[in-house]
């Protein structure tokens, strides 16, 4: 079968190649998915550039891609919840990475039936970004009337998070660039801050929660805009000490500056490491079928133009998700 593979770390055009590879076979708890659509994410770019070599060491060549939607065409002997012919979507586990291919085998723990009211392309745009937002905002217990700042509202995670927060009845601030203000408003954000003309730190002063999708100085600044006792949840900032402990990093401590502001603000800081989860995708399926969340696609590329899709991703100008149609 045809697959898009990473053959070396480096620039996108030099690192990716289409290869003919063996069709995967299923383990006892896997389903084999005939891929109809896959989506690409900023993490794919980081992998290609070699920024995650320490965390995710890859043998070359490796098929790339985490998000998928398609049809179950085979299943392992212990699979009970899925049947051949089921239409499904998933964020595949790290060891099964490789959705930019005609087929991918996936442990059913990561798989859900796809929303019935979406196309394959729309369904493929959801898993990684949707799980990141859902797991972050569910973990911190986002509730009605909470004031939340969601950074980068036009990105894959941000656009999902805005809609999820509104479905919970929260008041949503979000940041985006001038050209995206109108359409981010349409997602339901209550106050859209144009970061090119406004300083979000003067507008948001009493948030209950900041959802940090940017990292760097934004993680520290989040504590300036929450009220005392507020929460900052990050998917890109430094790991919190409990998460580090859970990962076996026993001597890890938070950066001093961050630790200081957390204490000053009597705040809670949580780092979320998104994990594949089929039952969470089942919850997202319901939210989408009920019309509470709309998949946001920037552009759909055919499979043979996948490398151009990665170049578009690298530009950082995508509004919503970049999807690749495999068939």
């Amino acid at each position: 079968m045809k697959a898009l593979q990473i053959v070396a770390y480096g620039e996108i055009k030099d690192s990716l190649a289409f290869n003919e590879v063996n069709k995967p076979t299923v383990q006892t708890t896997d389903v084999l998915i005939e891929v109809k659509a896959a989506a690409i994410n900023p993490i794919d770019k980081s992998i290609i550039l070699g920024k995650l070599q320490g965390l995710i060491p890859l043998p070359f060549p490796s098929t790339i891609g985490y998000d998928v939607s398609g049809i179950v065409v085979d299943k392992g002997t212990e699979v009970l919840d899925f049947e051949i012919g089921d239409l499904v979507y998933a964020r595949v586990p790290q060891e099964q990475m490789g959705t930019l291919a005609e087929y991918v085998a996936v442990n059913t723990i990561a798989v859900s039936k796809k929303p019935g009211n979406t196309s394959f392309e729309e369904a493929a745009s959801i898993p990684l970004a949707g799980l990141t937002a859902l797991q972050s905002l569910e973990y911190i217990g986002l509730k009605k009337d909470d004031k939340i700042l969601i950074h980068a509202g036009s990105g894959g995670v941000g656009s999902f998070a805005i809609q999820y927060a509104k479905s919970k009845g929260a008041y949503v601030y979000t940041t985006t660039s001038t050209s995206n203000v109108t359409w981010v408003k349409k997602l339901g954000a209550d106050r859209v801050i144009d970061y090119k003309t406004e300083d979000y730190k003067t507008i948001v002063t009493d948030a209950d929660i900041v959802f940090d999708t940017l990292g760097k100085h934004y993680t520290r600044e989040a504590f300036q805009v929450i009220k005392k006792g507020g929460t900052v949840v990050s998917v890109v900032g430094p790991m919190d000490e409990q998460s580090a402990k859970d990962f076996g990093m026993t001597d890890y401590t938070l950066p001093v500056e961050l630790s200081k502001v957390i204490q000053e603000r009597e705040a809670r800081y949580k780092f979320i490491f998104m994990h594949p989860n089929g039952s969470h995708l089942g919850k997202i399926k319901t939210l989408i079928e009920d019309g509470k969340i709309q998949p946001i696609i920037d552009i759909v590329y055919p499979f043979n133009k996948s490398i151009e899709a990665f170049t578009h991703l690298a530009s950082g100008r995508a509004k919503g998700k970049i999807v690749i149609k495999i068939e």
């Binding site: 939607s69 019935g116 009211n117 979406t118 196309s119 394959f120 392309e121």
Partner: peptide
């Protein structure tokens, strides 16, 4: 009863 089109929609 429903059918699913080529795009995956019911």
């Amino acid at each position: 009863s429903y059918c699913t089109d080529k795009k995956g929609k019911e």
